[in-house]
């Protein structure tokens, strides 16, 4: 892309996002905040799907872990976001380290199903927390920012989310371009060669898994704060499927695709459900069509990304 053109787009985007709070009503602004939050999670998932060539069907578990950790810590009397948020993200990362360590010993379809099964296990843990409402969930008082930001001001929360999203986006771009990112892709394309030069693929994949789990946990923390309520549904397996849909609706392997896909998905499910009680049918249909008709870039790129299925096919 020509740099002039790219800069024009970036400036235009920045202007749009900066003006959004004044152009939109509170509902729409919250919808945009939600898009950004799911964008963070989808970028995390894209790191695995697009760069490590692994498809996790259980990343909602980390969304849930982040939300529950934030909710429980807040309930215990910690209010400051500066304390609660990092701790909650660390809980997500720790969960990802354990689940990733166990799941990454397998790959391909096996990896998909194992991540799904572990996520179900975590989902049942949430459901059995009677002190925290069990299946009904519990309310969270929004975390405070030492008086710097009013957590109940929708505009302030939007700008905070926007800033976090932007920082994560830029960091991820650096990560995938770094030697780590190169090794990750090398592991995907040819694990044996990477091992031959003394670099174990497992380690790189585990780091990517932890990073993506932590990002989903961060998204969970933000979503819990935006919603003010936490339920086991955050960690349900259809939610994991939706995260993958977001990655696909954008473009896998680009990082920005996660942001775009999350925005499309949130907008789509909002519009469809306002139009029809049978929105689920139409959402399913759109997904199937999107997959079938995607003969273009996404598919070609992804096909290249997945050497394992070519190996056994």
């Amino acid at each position: 892309m020509n740099p002039m053109f790219r800069n024009t787009i970036l400036v235009a985007l920045a202007a749009i996002f900066a003006a959004a709070p004044w152009a939109l009503d509170e509902f729409s602004l919250n919808l945009v905040t939600r898009m950004l939050i799911f964008g963070i999670a989808a970028m995390g998932v894209d790191l695995l799907v697009g760069f490590a060539g692994l498809v996790p069907l259980g990343h909602a578990a980390f969304l849930g872990l982040g939300a529950y950790a934030a909710g429980i810590l807040t309930d215990m009397g910690l209010e400051s976001a500066f304390v609660v948020w990092p701790l909650a993200i660390m809980v997500g990362a720790l969960g990802a380290a354990i689940i990733g360590g166990l799941s990454l010993r397998s790959s391909g379809l096996y990896f998909i199903m194992i991540t799904l099964a572990f996520a179900q296990m975590i989902y049942y843990v949430f459901q059995s927390l009677r002190a925290y409402g069990g299946d009904d969930g519990f309310a969270l008082t929004r975390n405070t920012f030492a008086g710097l930001i009013d957590p109940y001001d929708s505009r302030a929360f939007y700008f905070l989310t926007l800033a976090i999203t932007l920082v994560i986006f830029l960091l991820l771009l650096r990560v995938v371009a770094s030697p780590f990112g190169v090794a990750l892709r090398a592991a995907r394309d040819n694990e044996a060669r990477l091992a031959a030069v003394g670099l174990p693929a497992f380690g790189y994949r585990l780091v990517a898994f932890i990073l993506s789990g932590a990002l989903c946990a961060f998204a969970g923390v933000l979503l819990a704060n935006l919603t003010g309520y936490i339920t086991p549904g955050y960690g349900s397996w259809p939610q994991s499927g939706e995260l993958l849909m977001m990655v696909l609706l954008g473009t896998a392997g680009t990082i920005w695709g996660g942001l775009l896909g999350a925005a499309i998905f949130v907008a789509l499910s909002e519009v469809l459900s306002e139009v029809s009680d049978h929105w689920m049918f139409y959402l399913g249909l759109l997904i199937v069509l999107r997959v079938l008709l995607a003969g273009g870039e996404t598919t070609k790129l992804l096909k290249r990304l997945d050497p394992r299925r070519r190996a056994d096919g």
């Binding site: 009503d25 509902f27 919808l31 969930g137 919603t227 339920t231 459900s273």
Partner: peptide
């Protein structure tokens, strides 16, 4: 407004009714 039996969607829809 359809809450889809989900807390997060319900809060979003509540905001649609009240704010929009």
């Amino acid at each position: 407004a359809d809450d889809k039996f989900s807390a997060a969607d319900a809060v979003q829809q509540m905001s649609r009714l009240i704010d929009r």
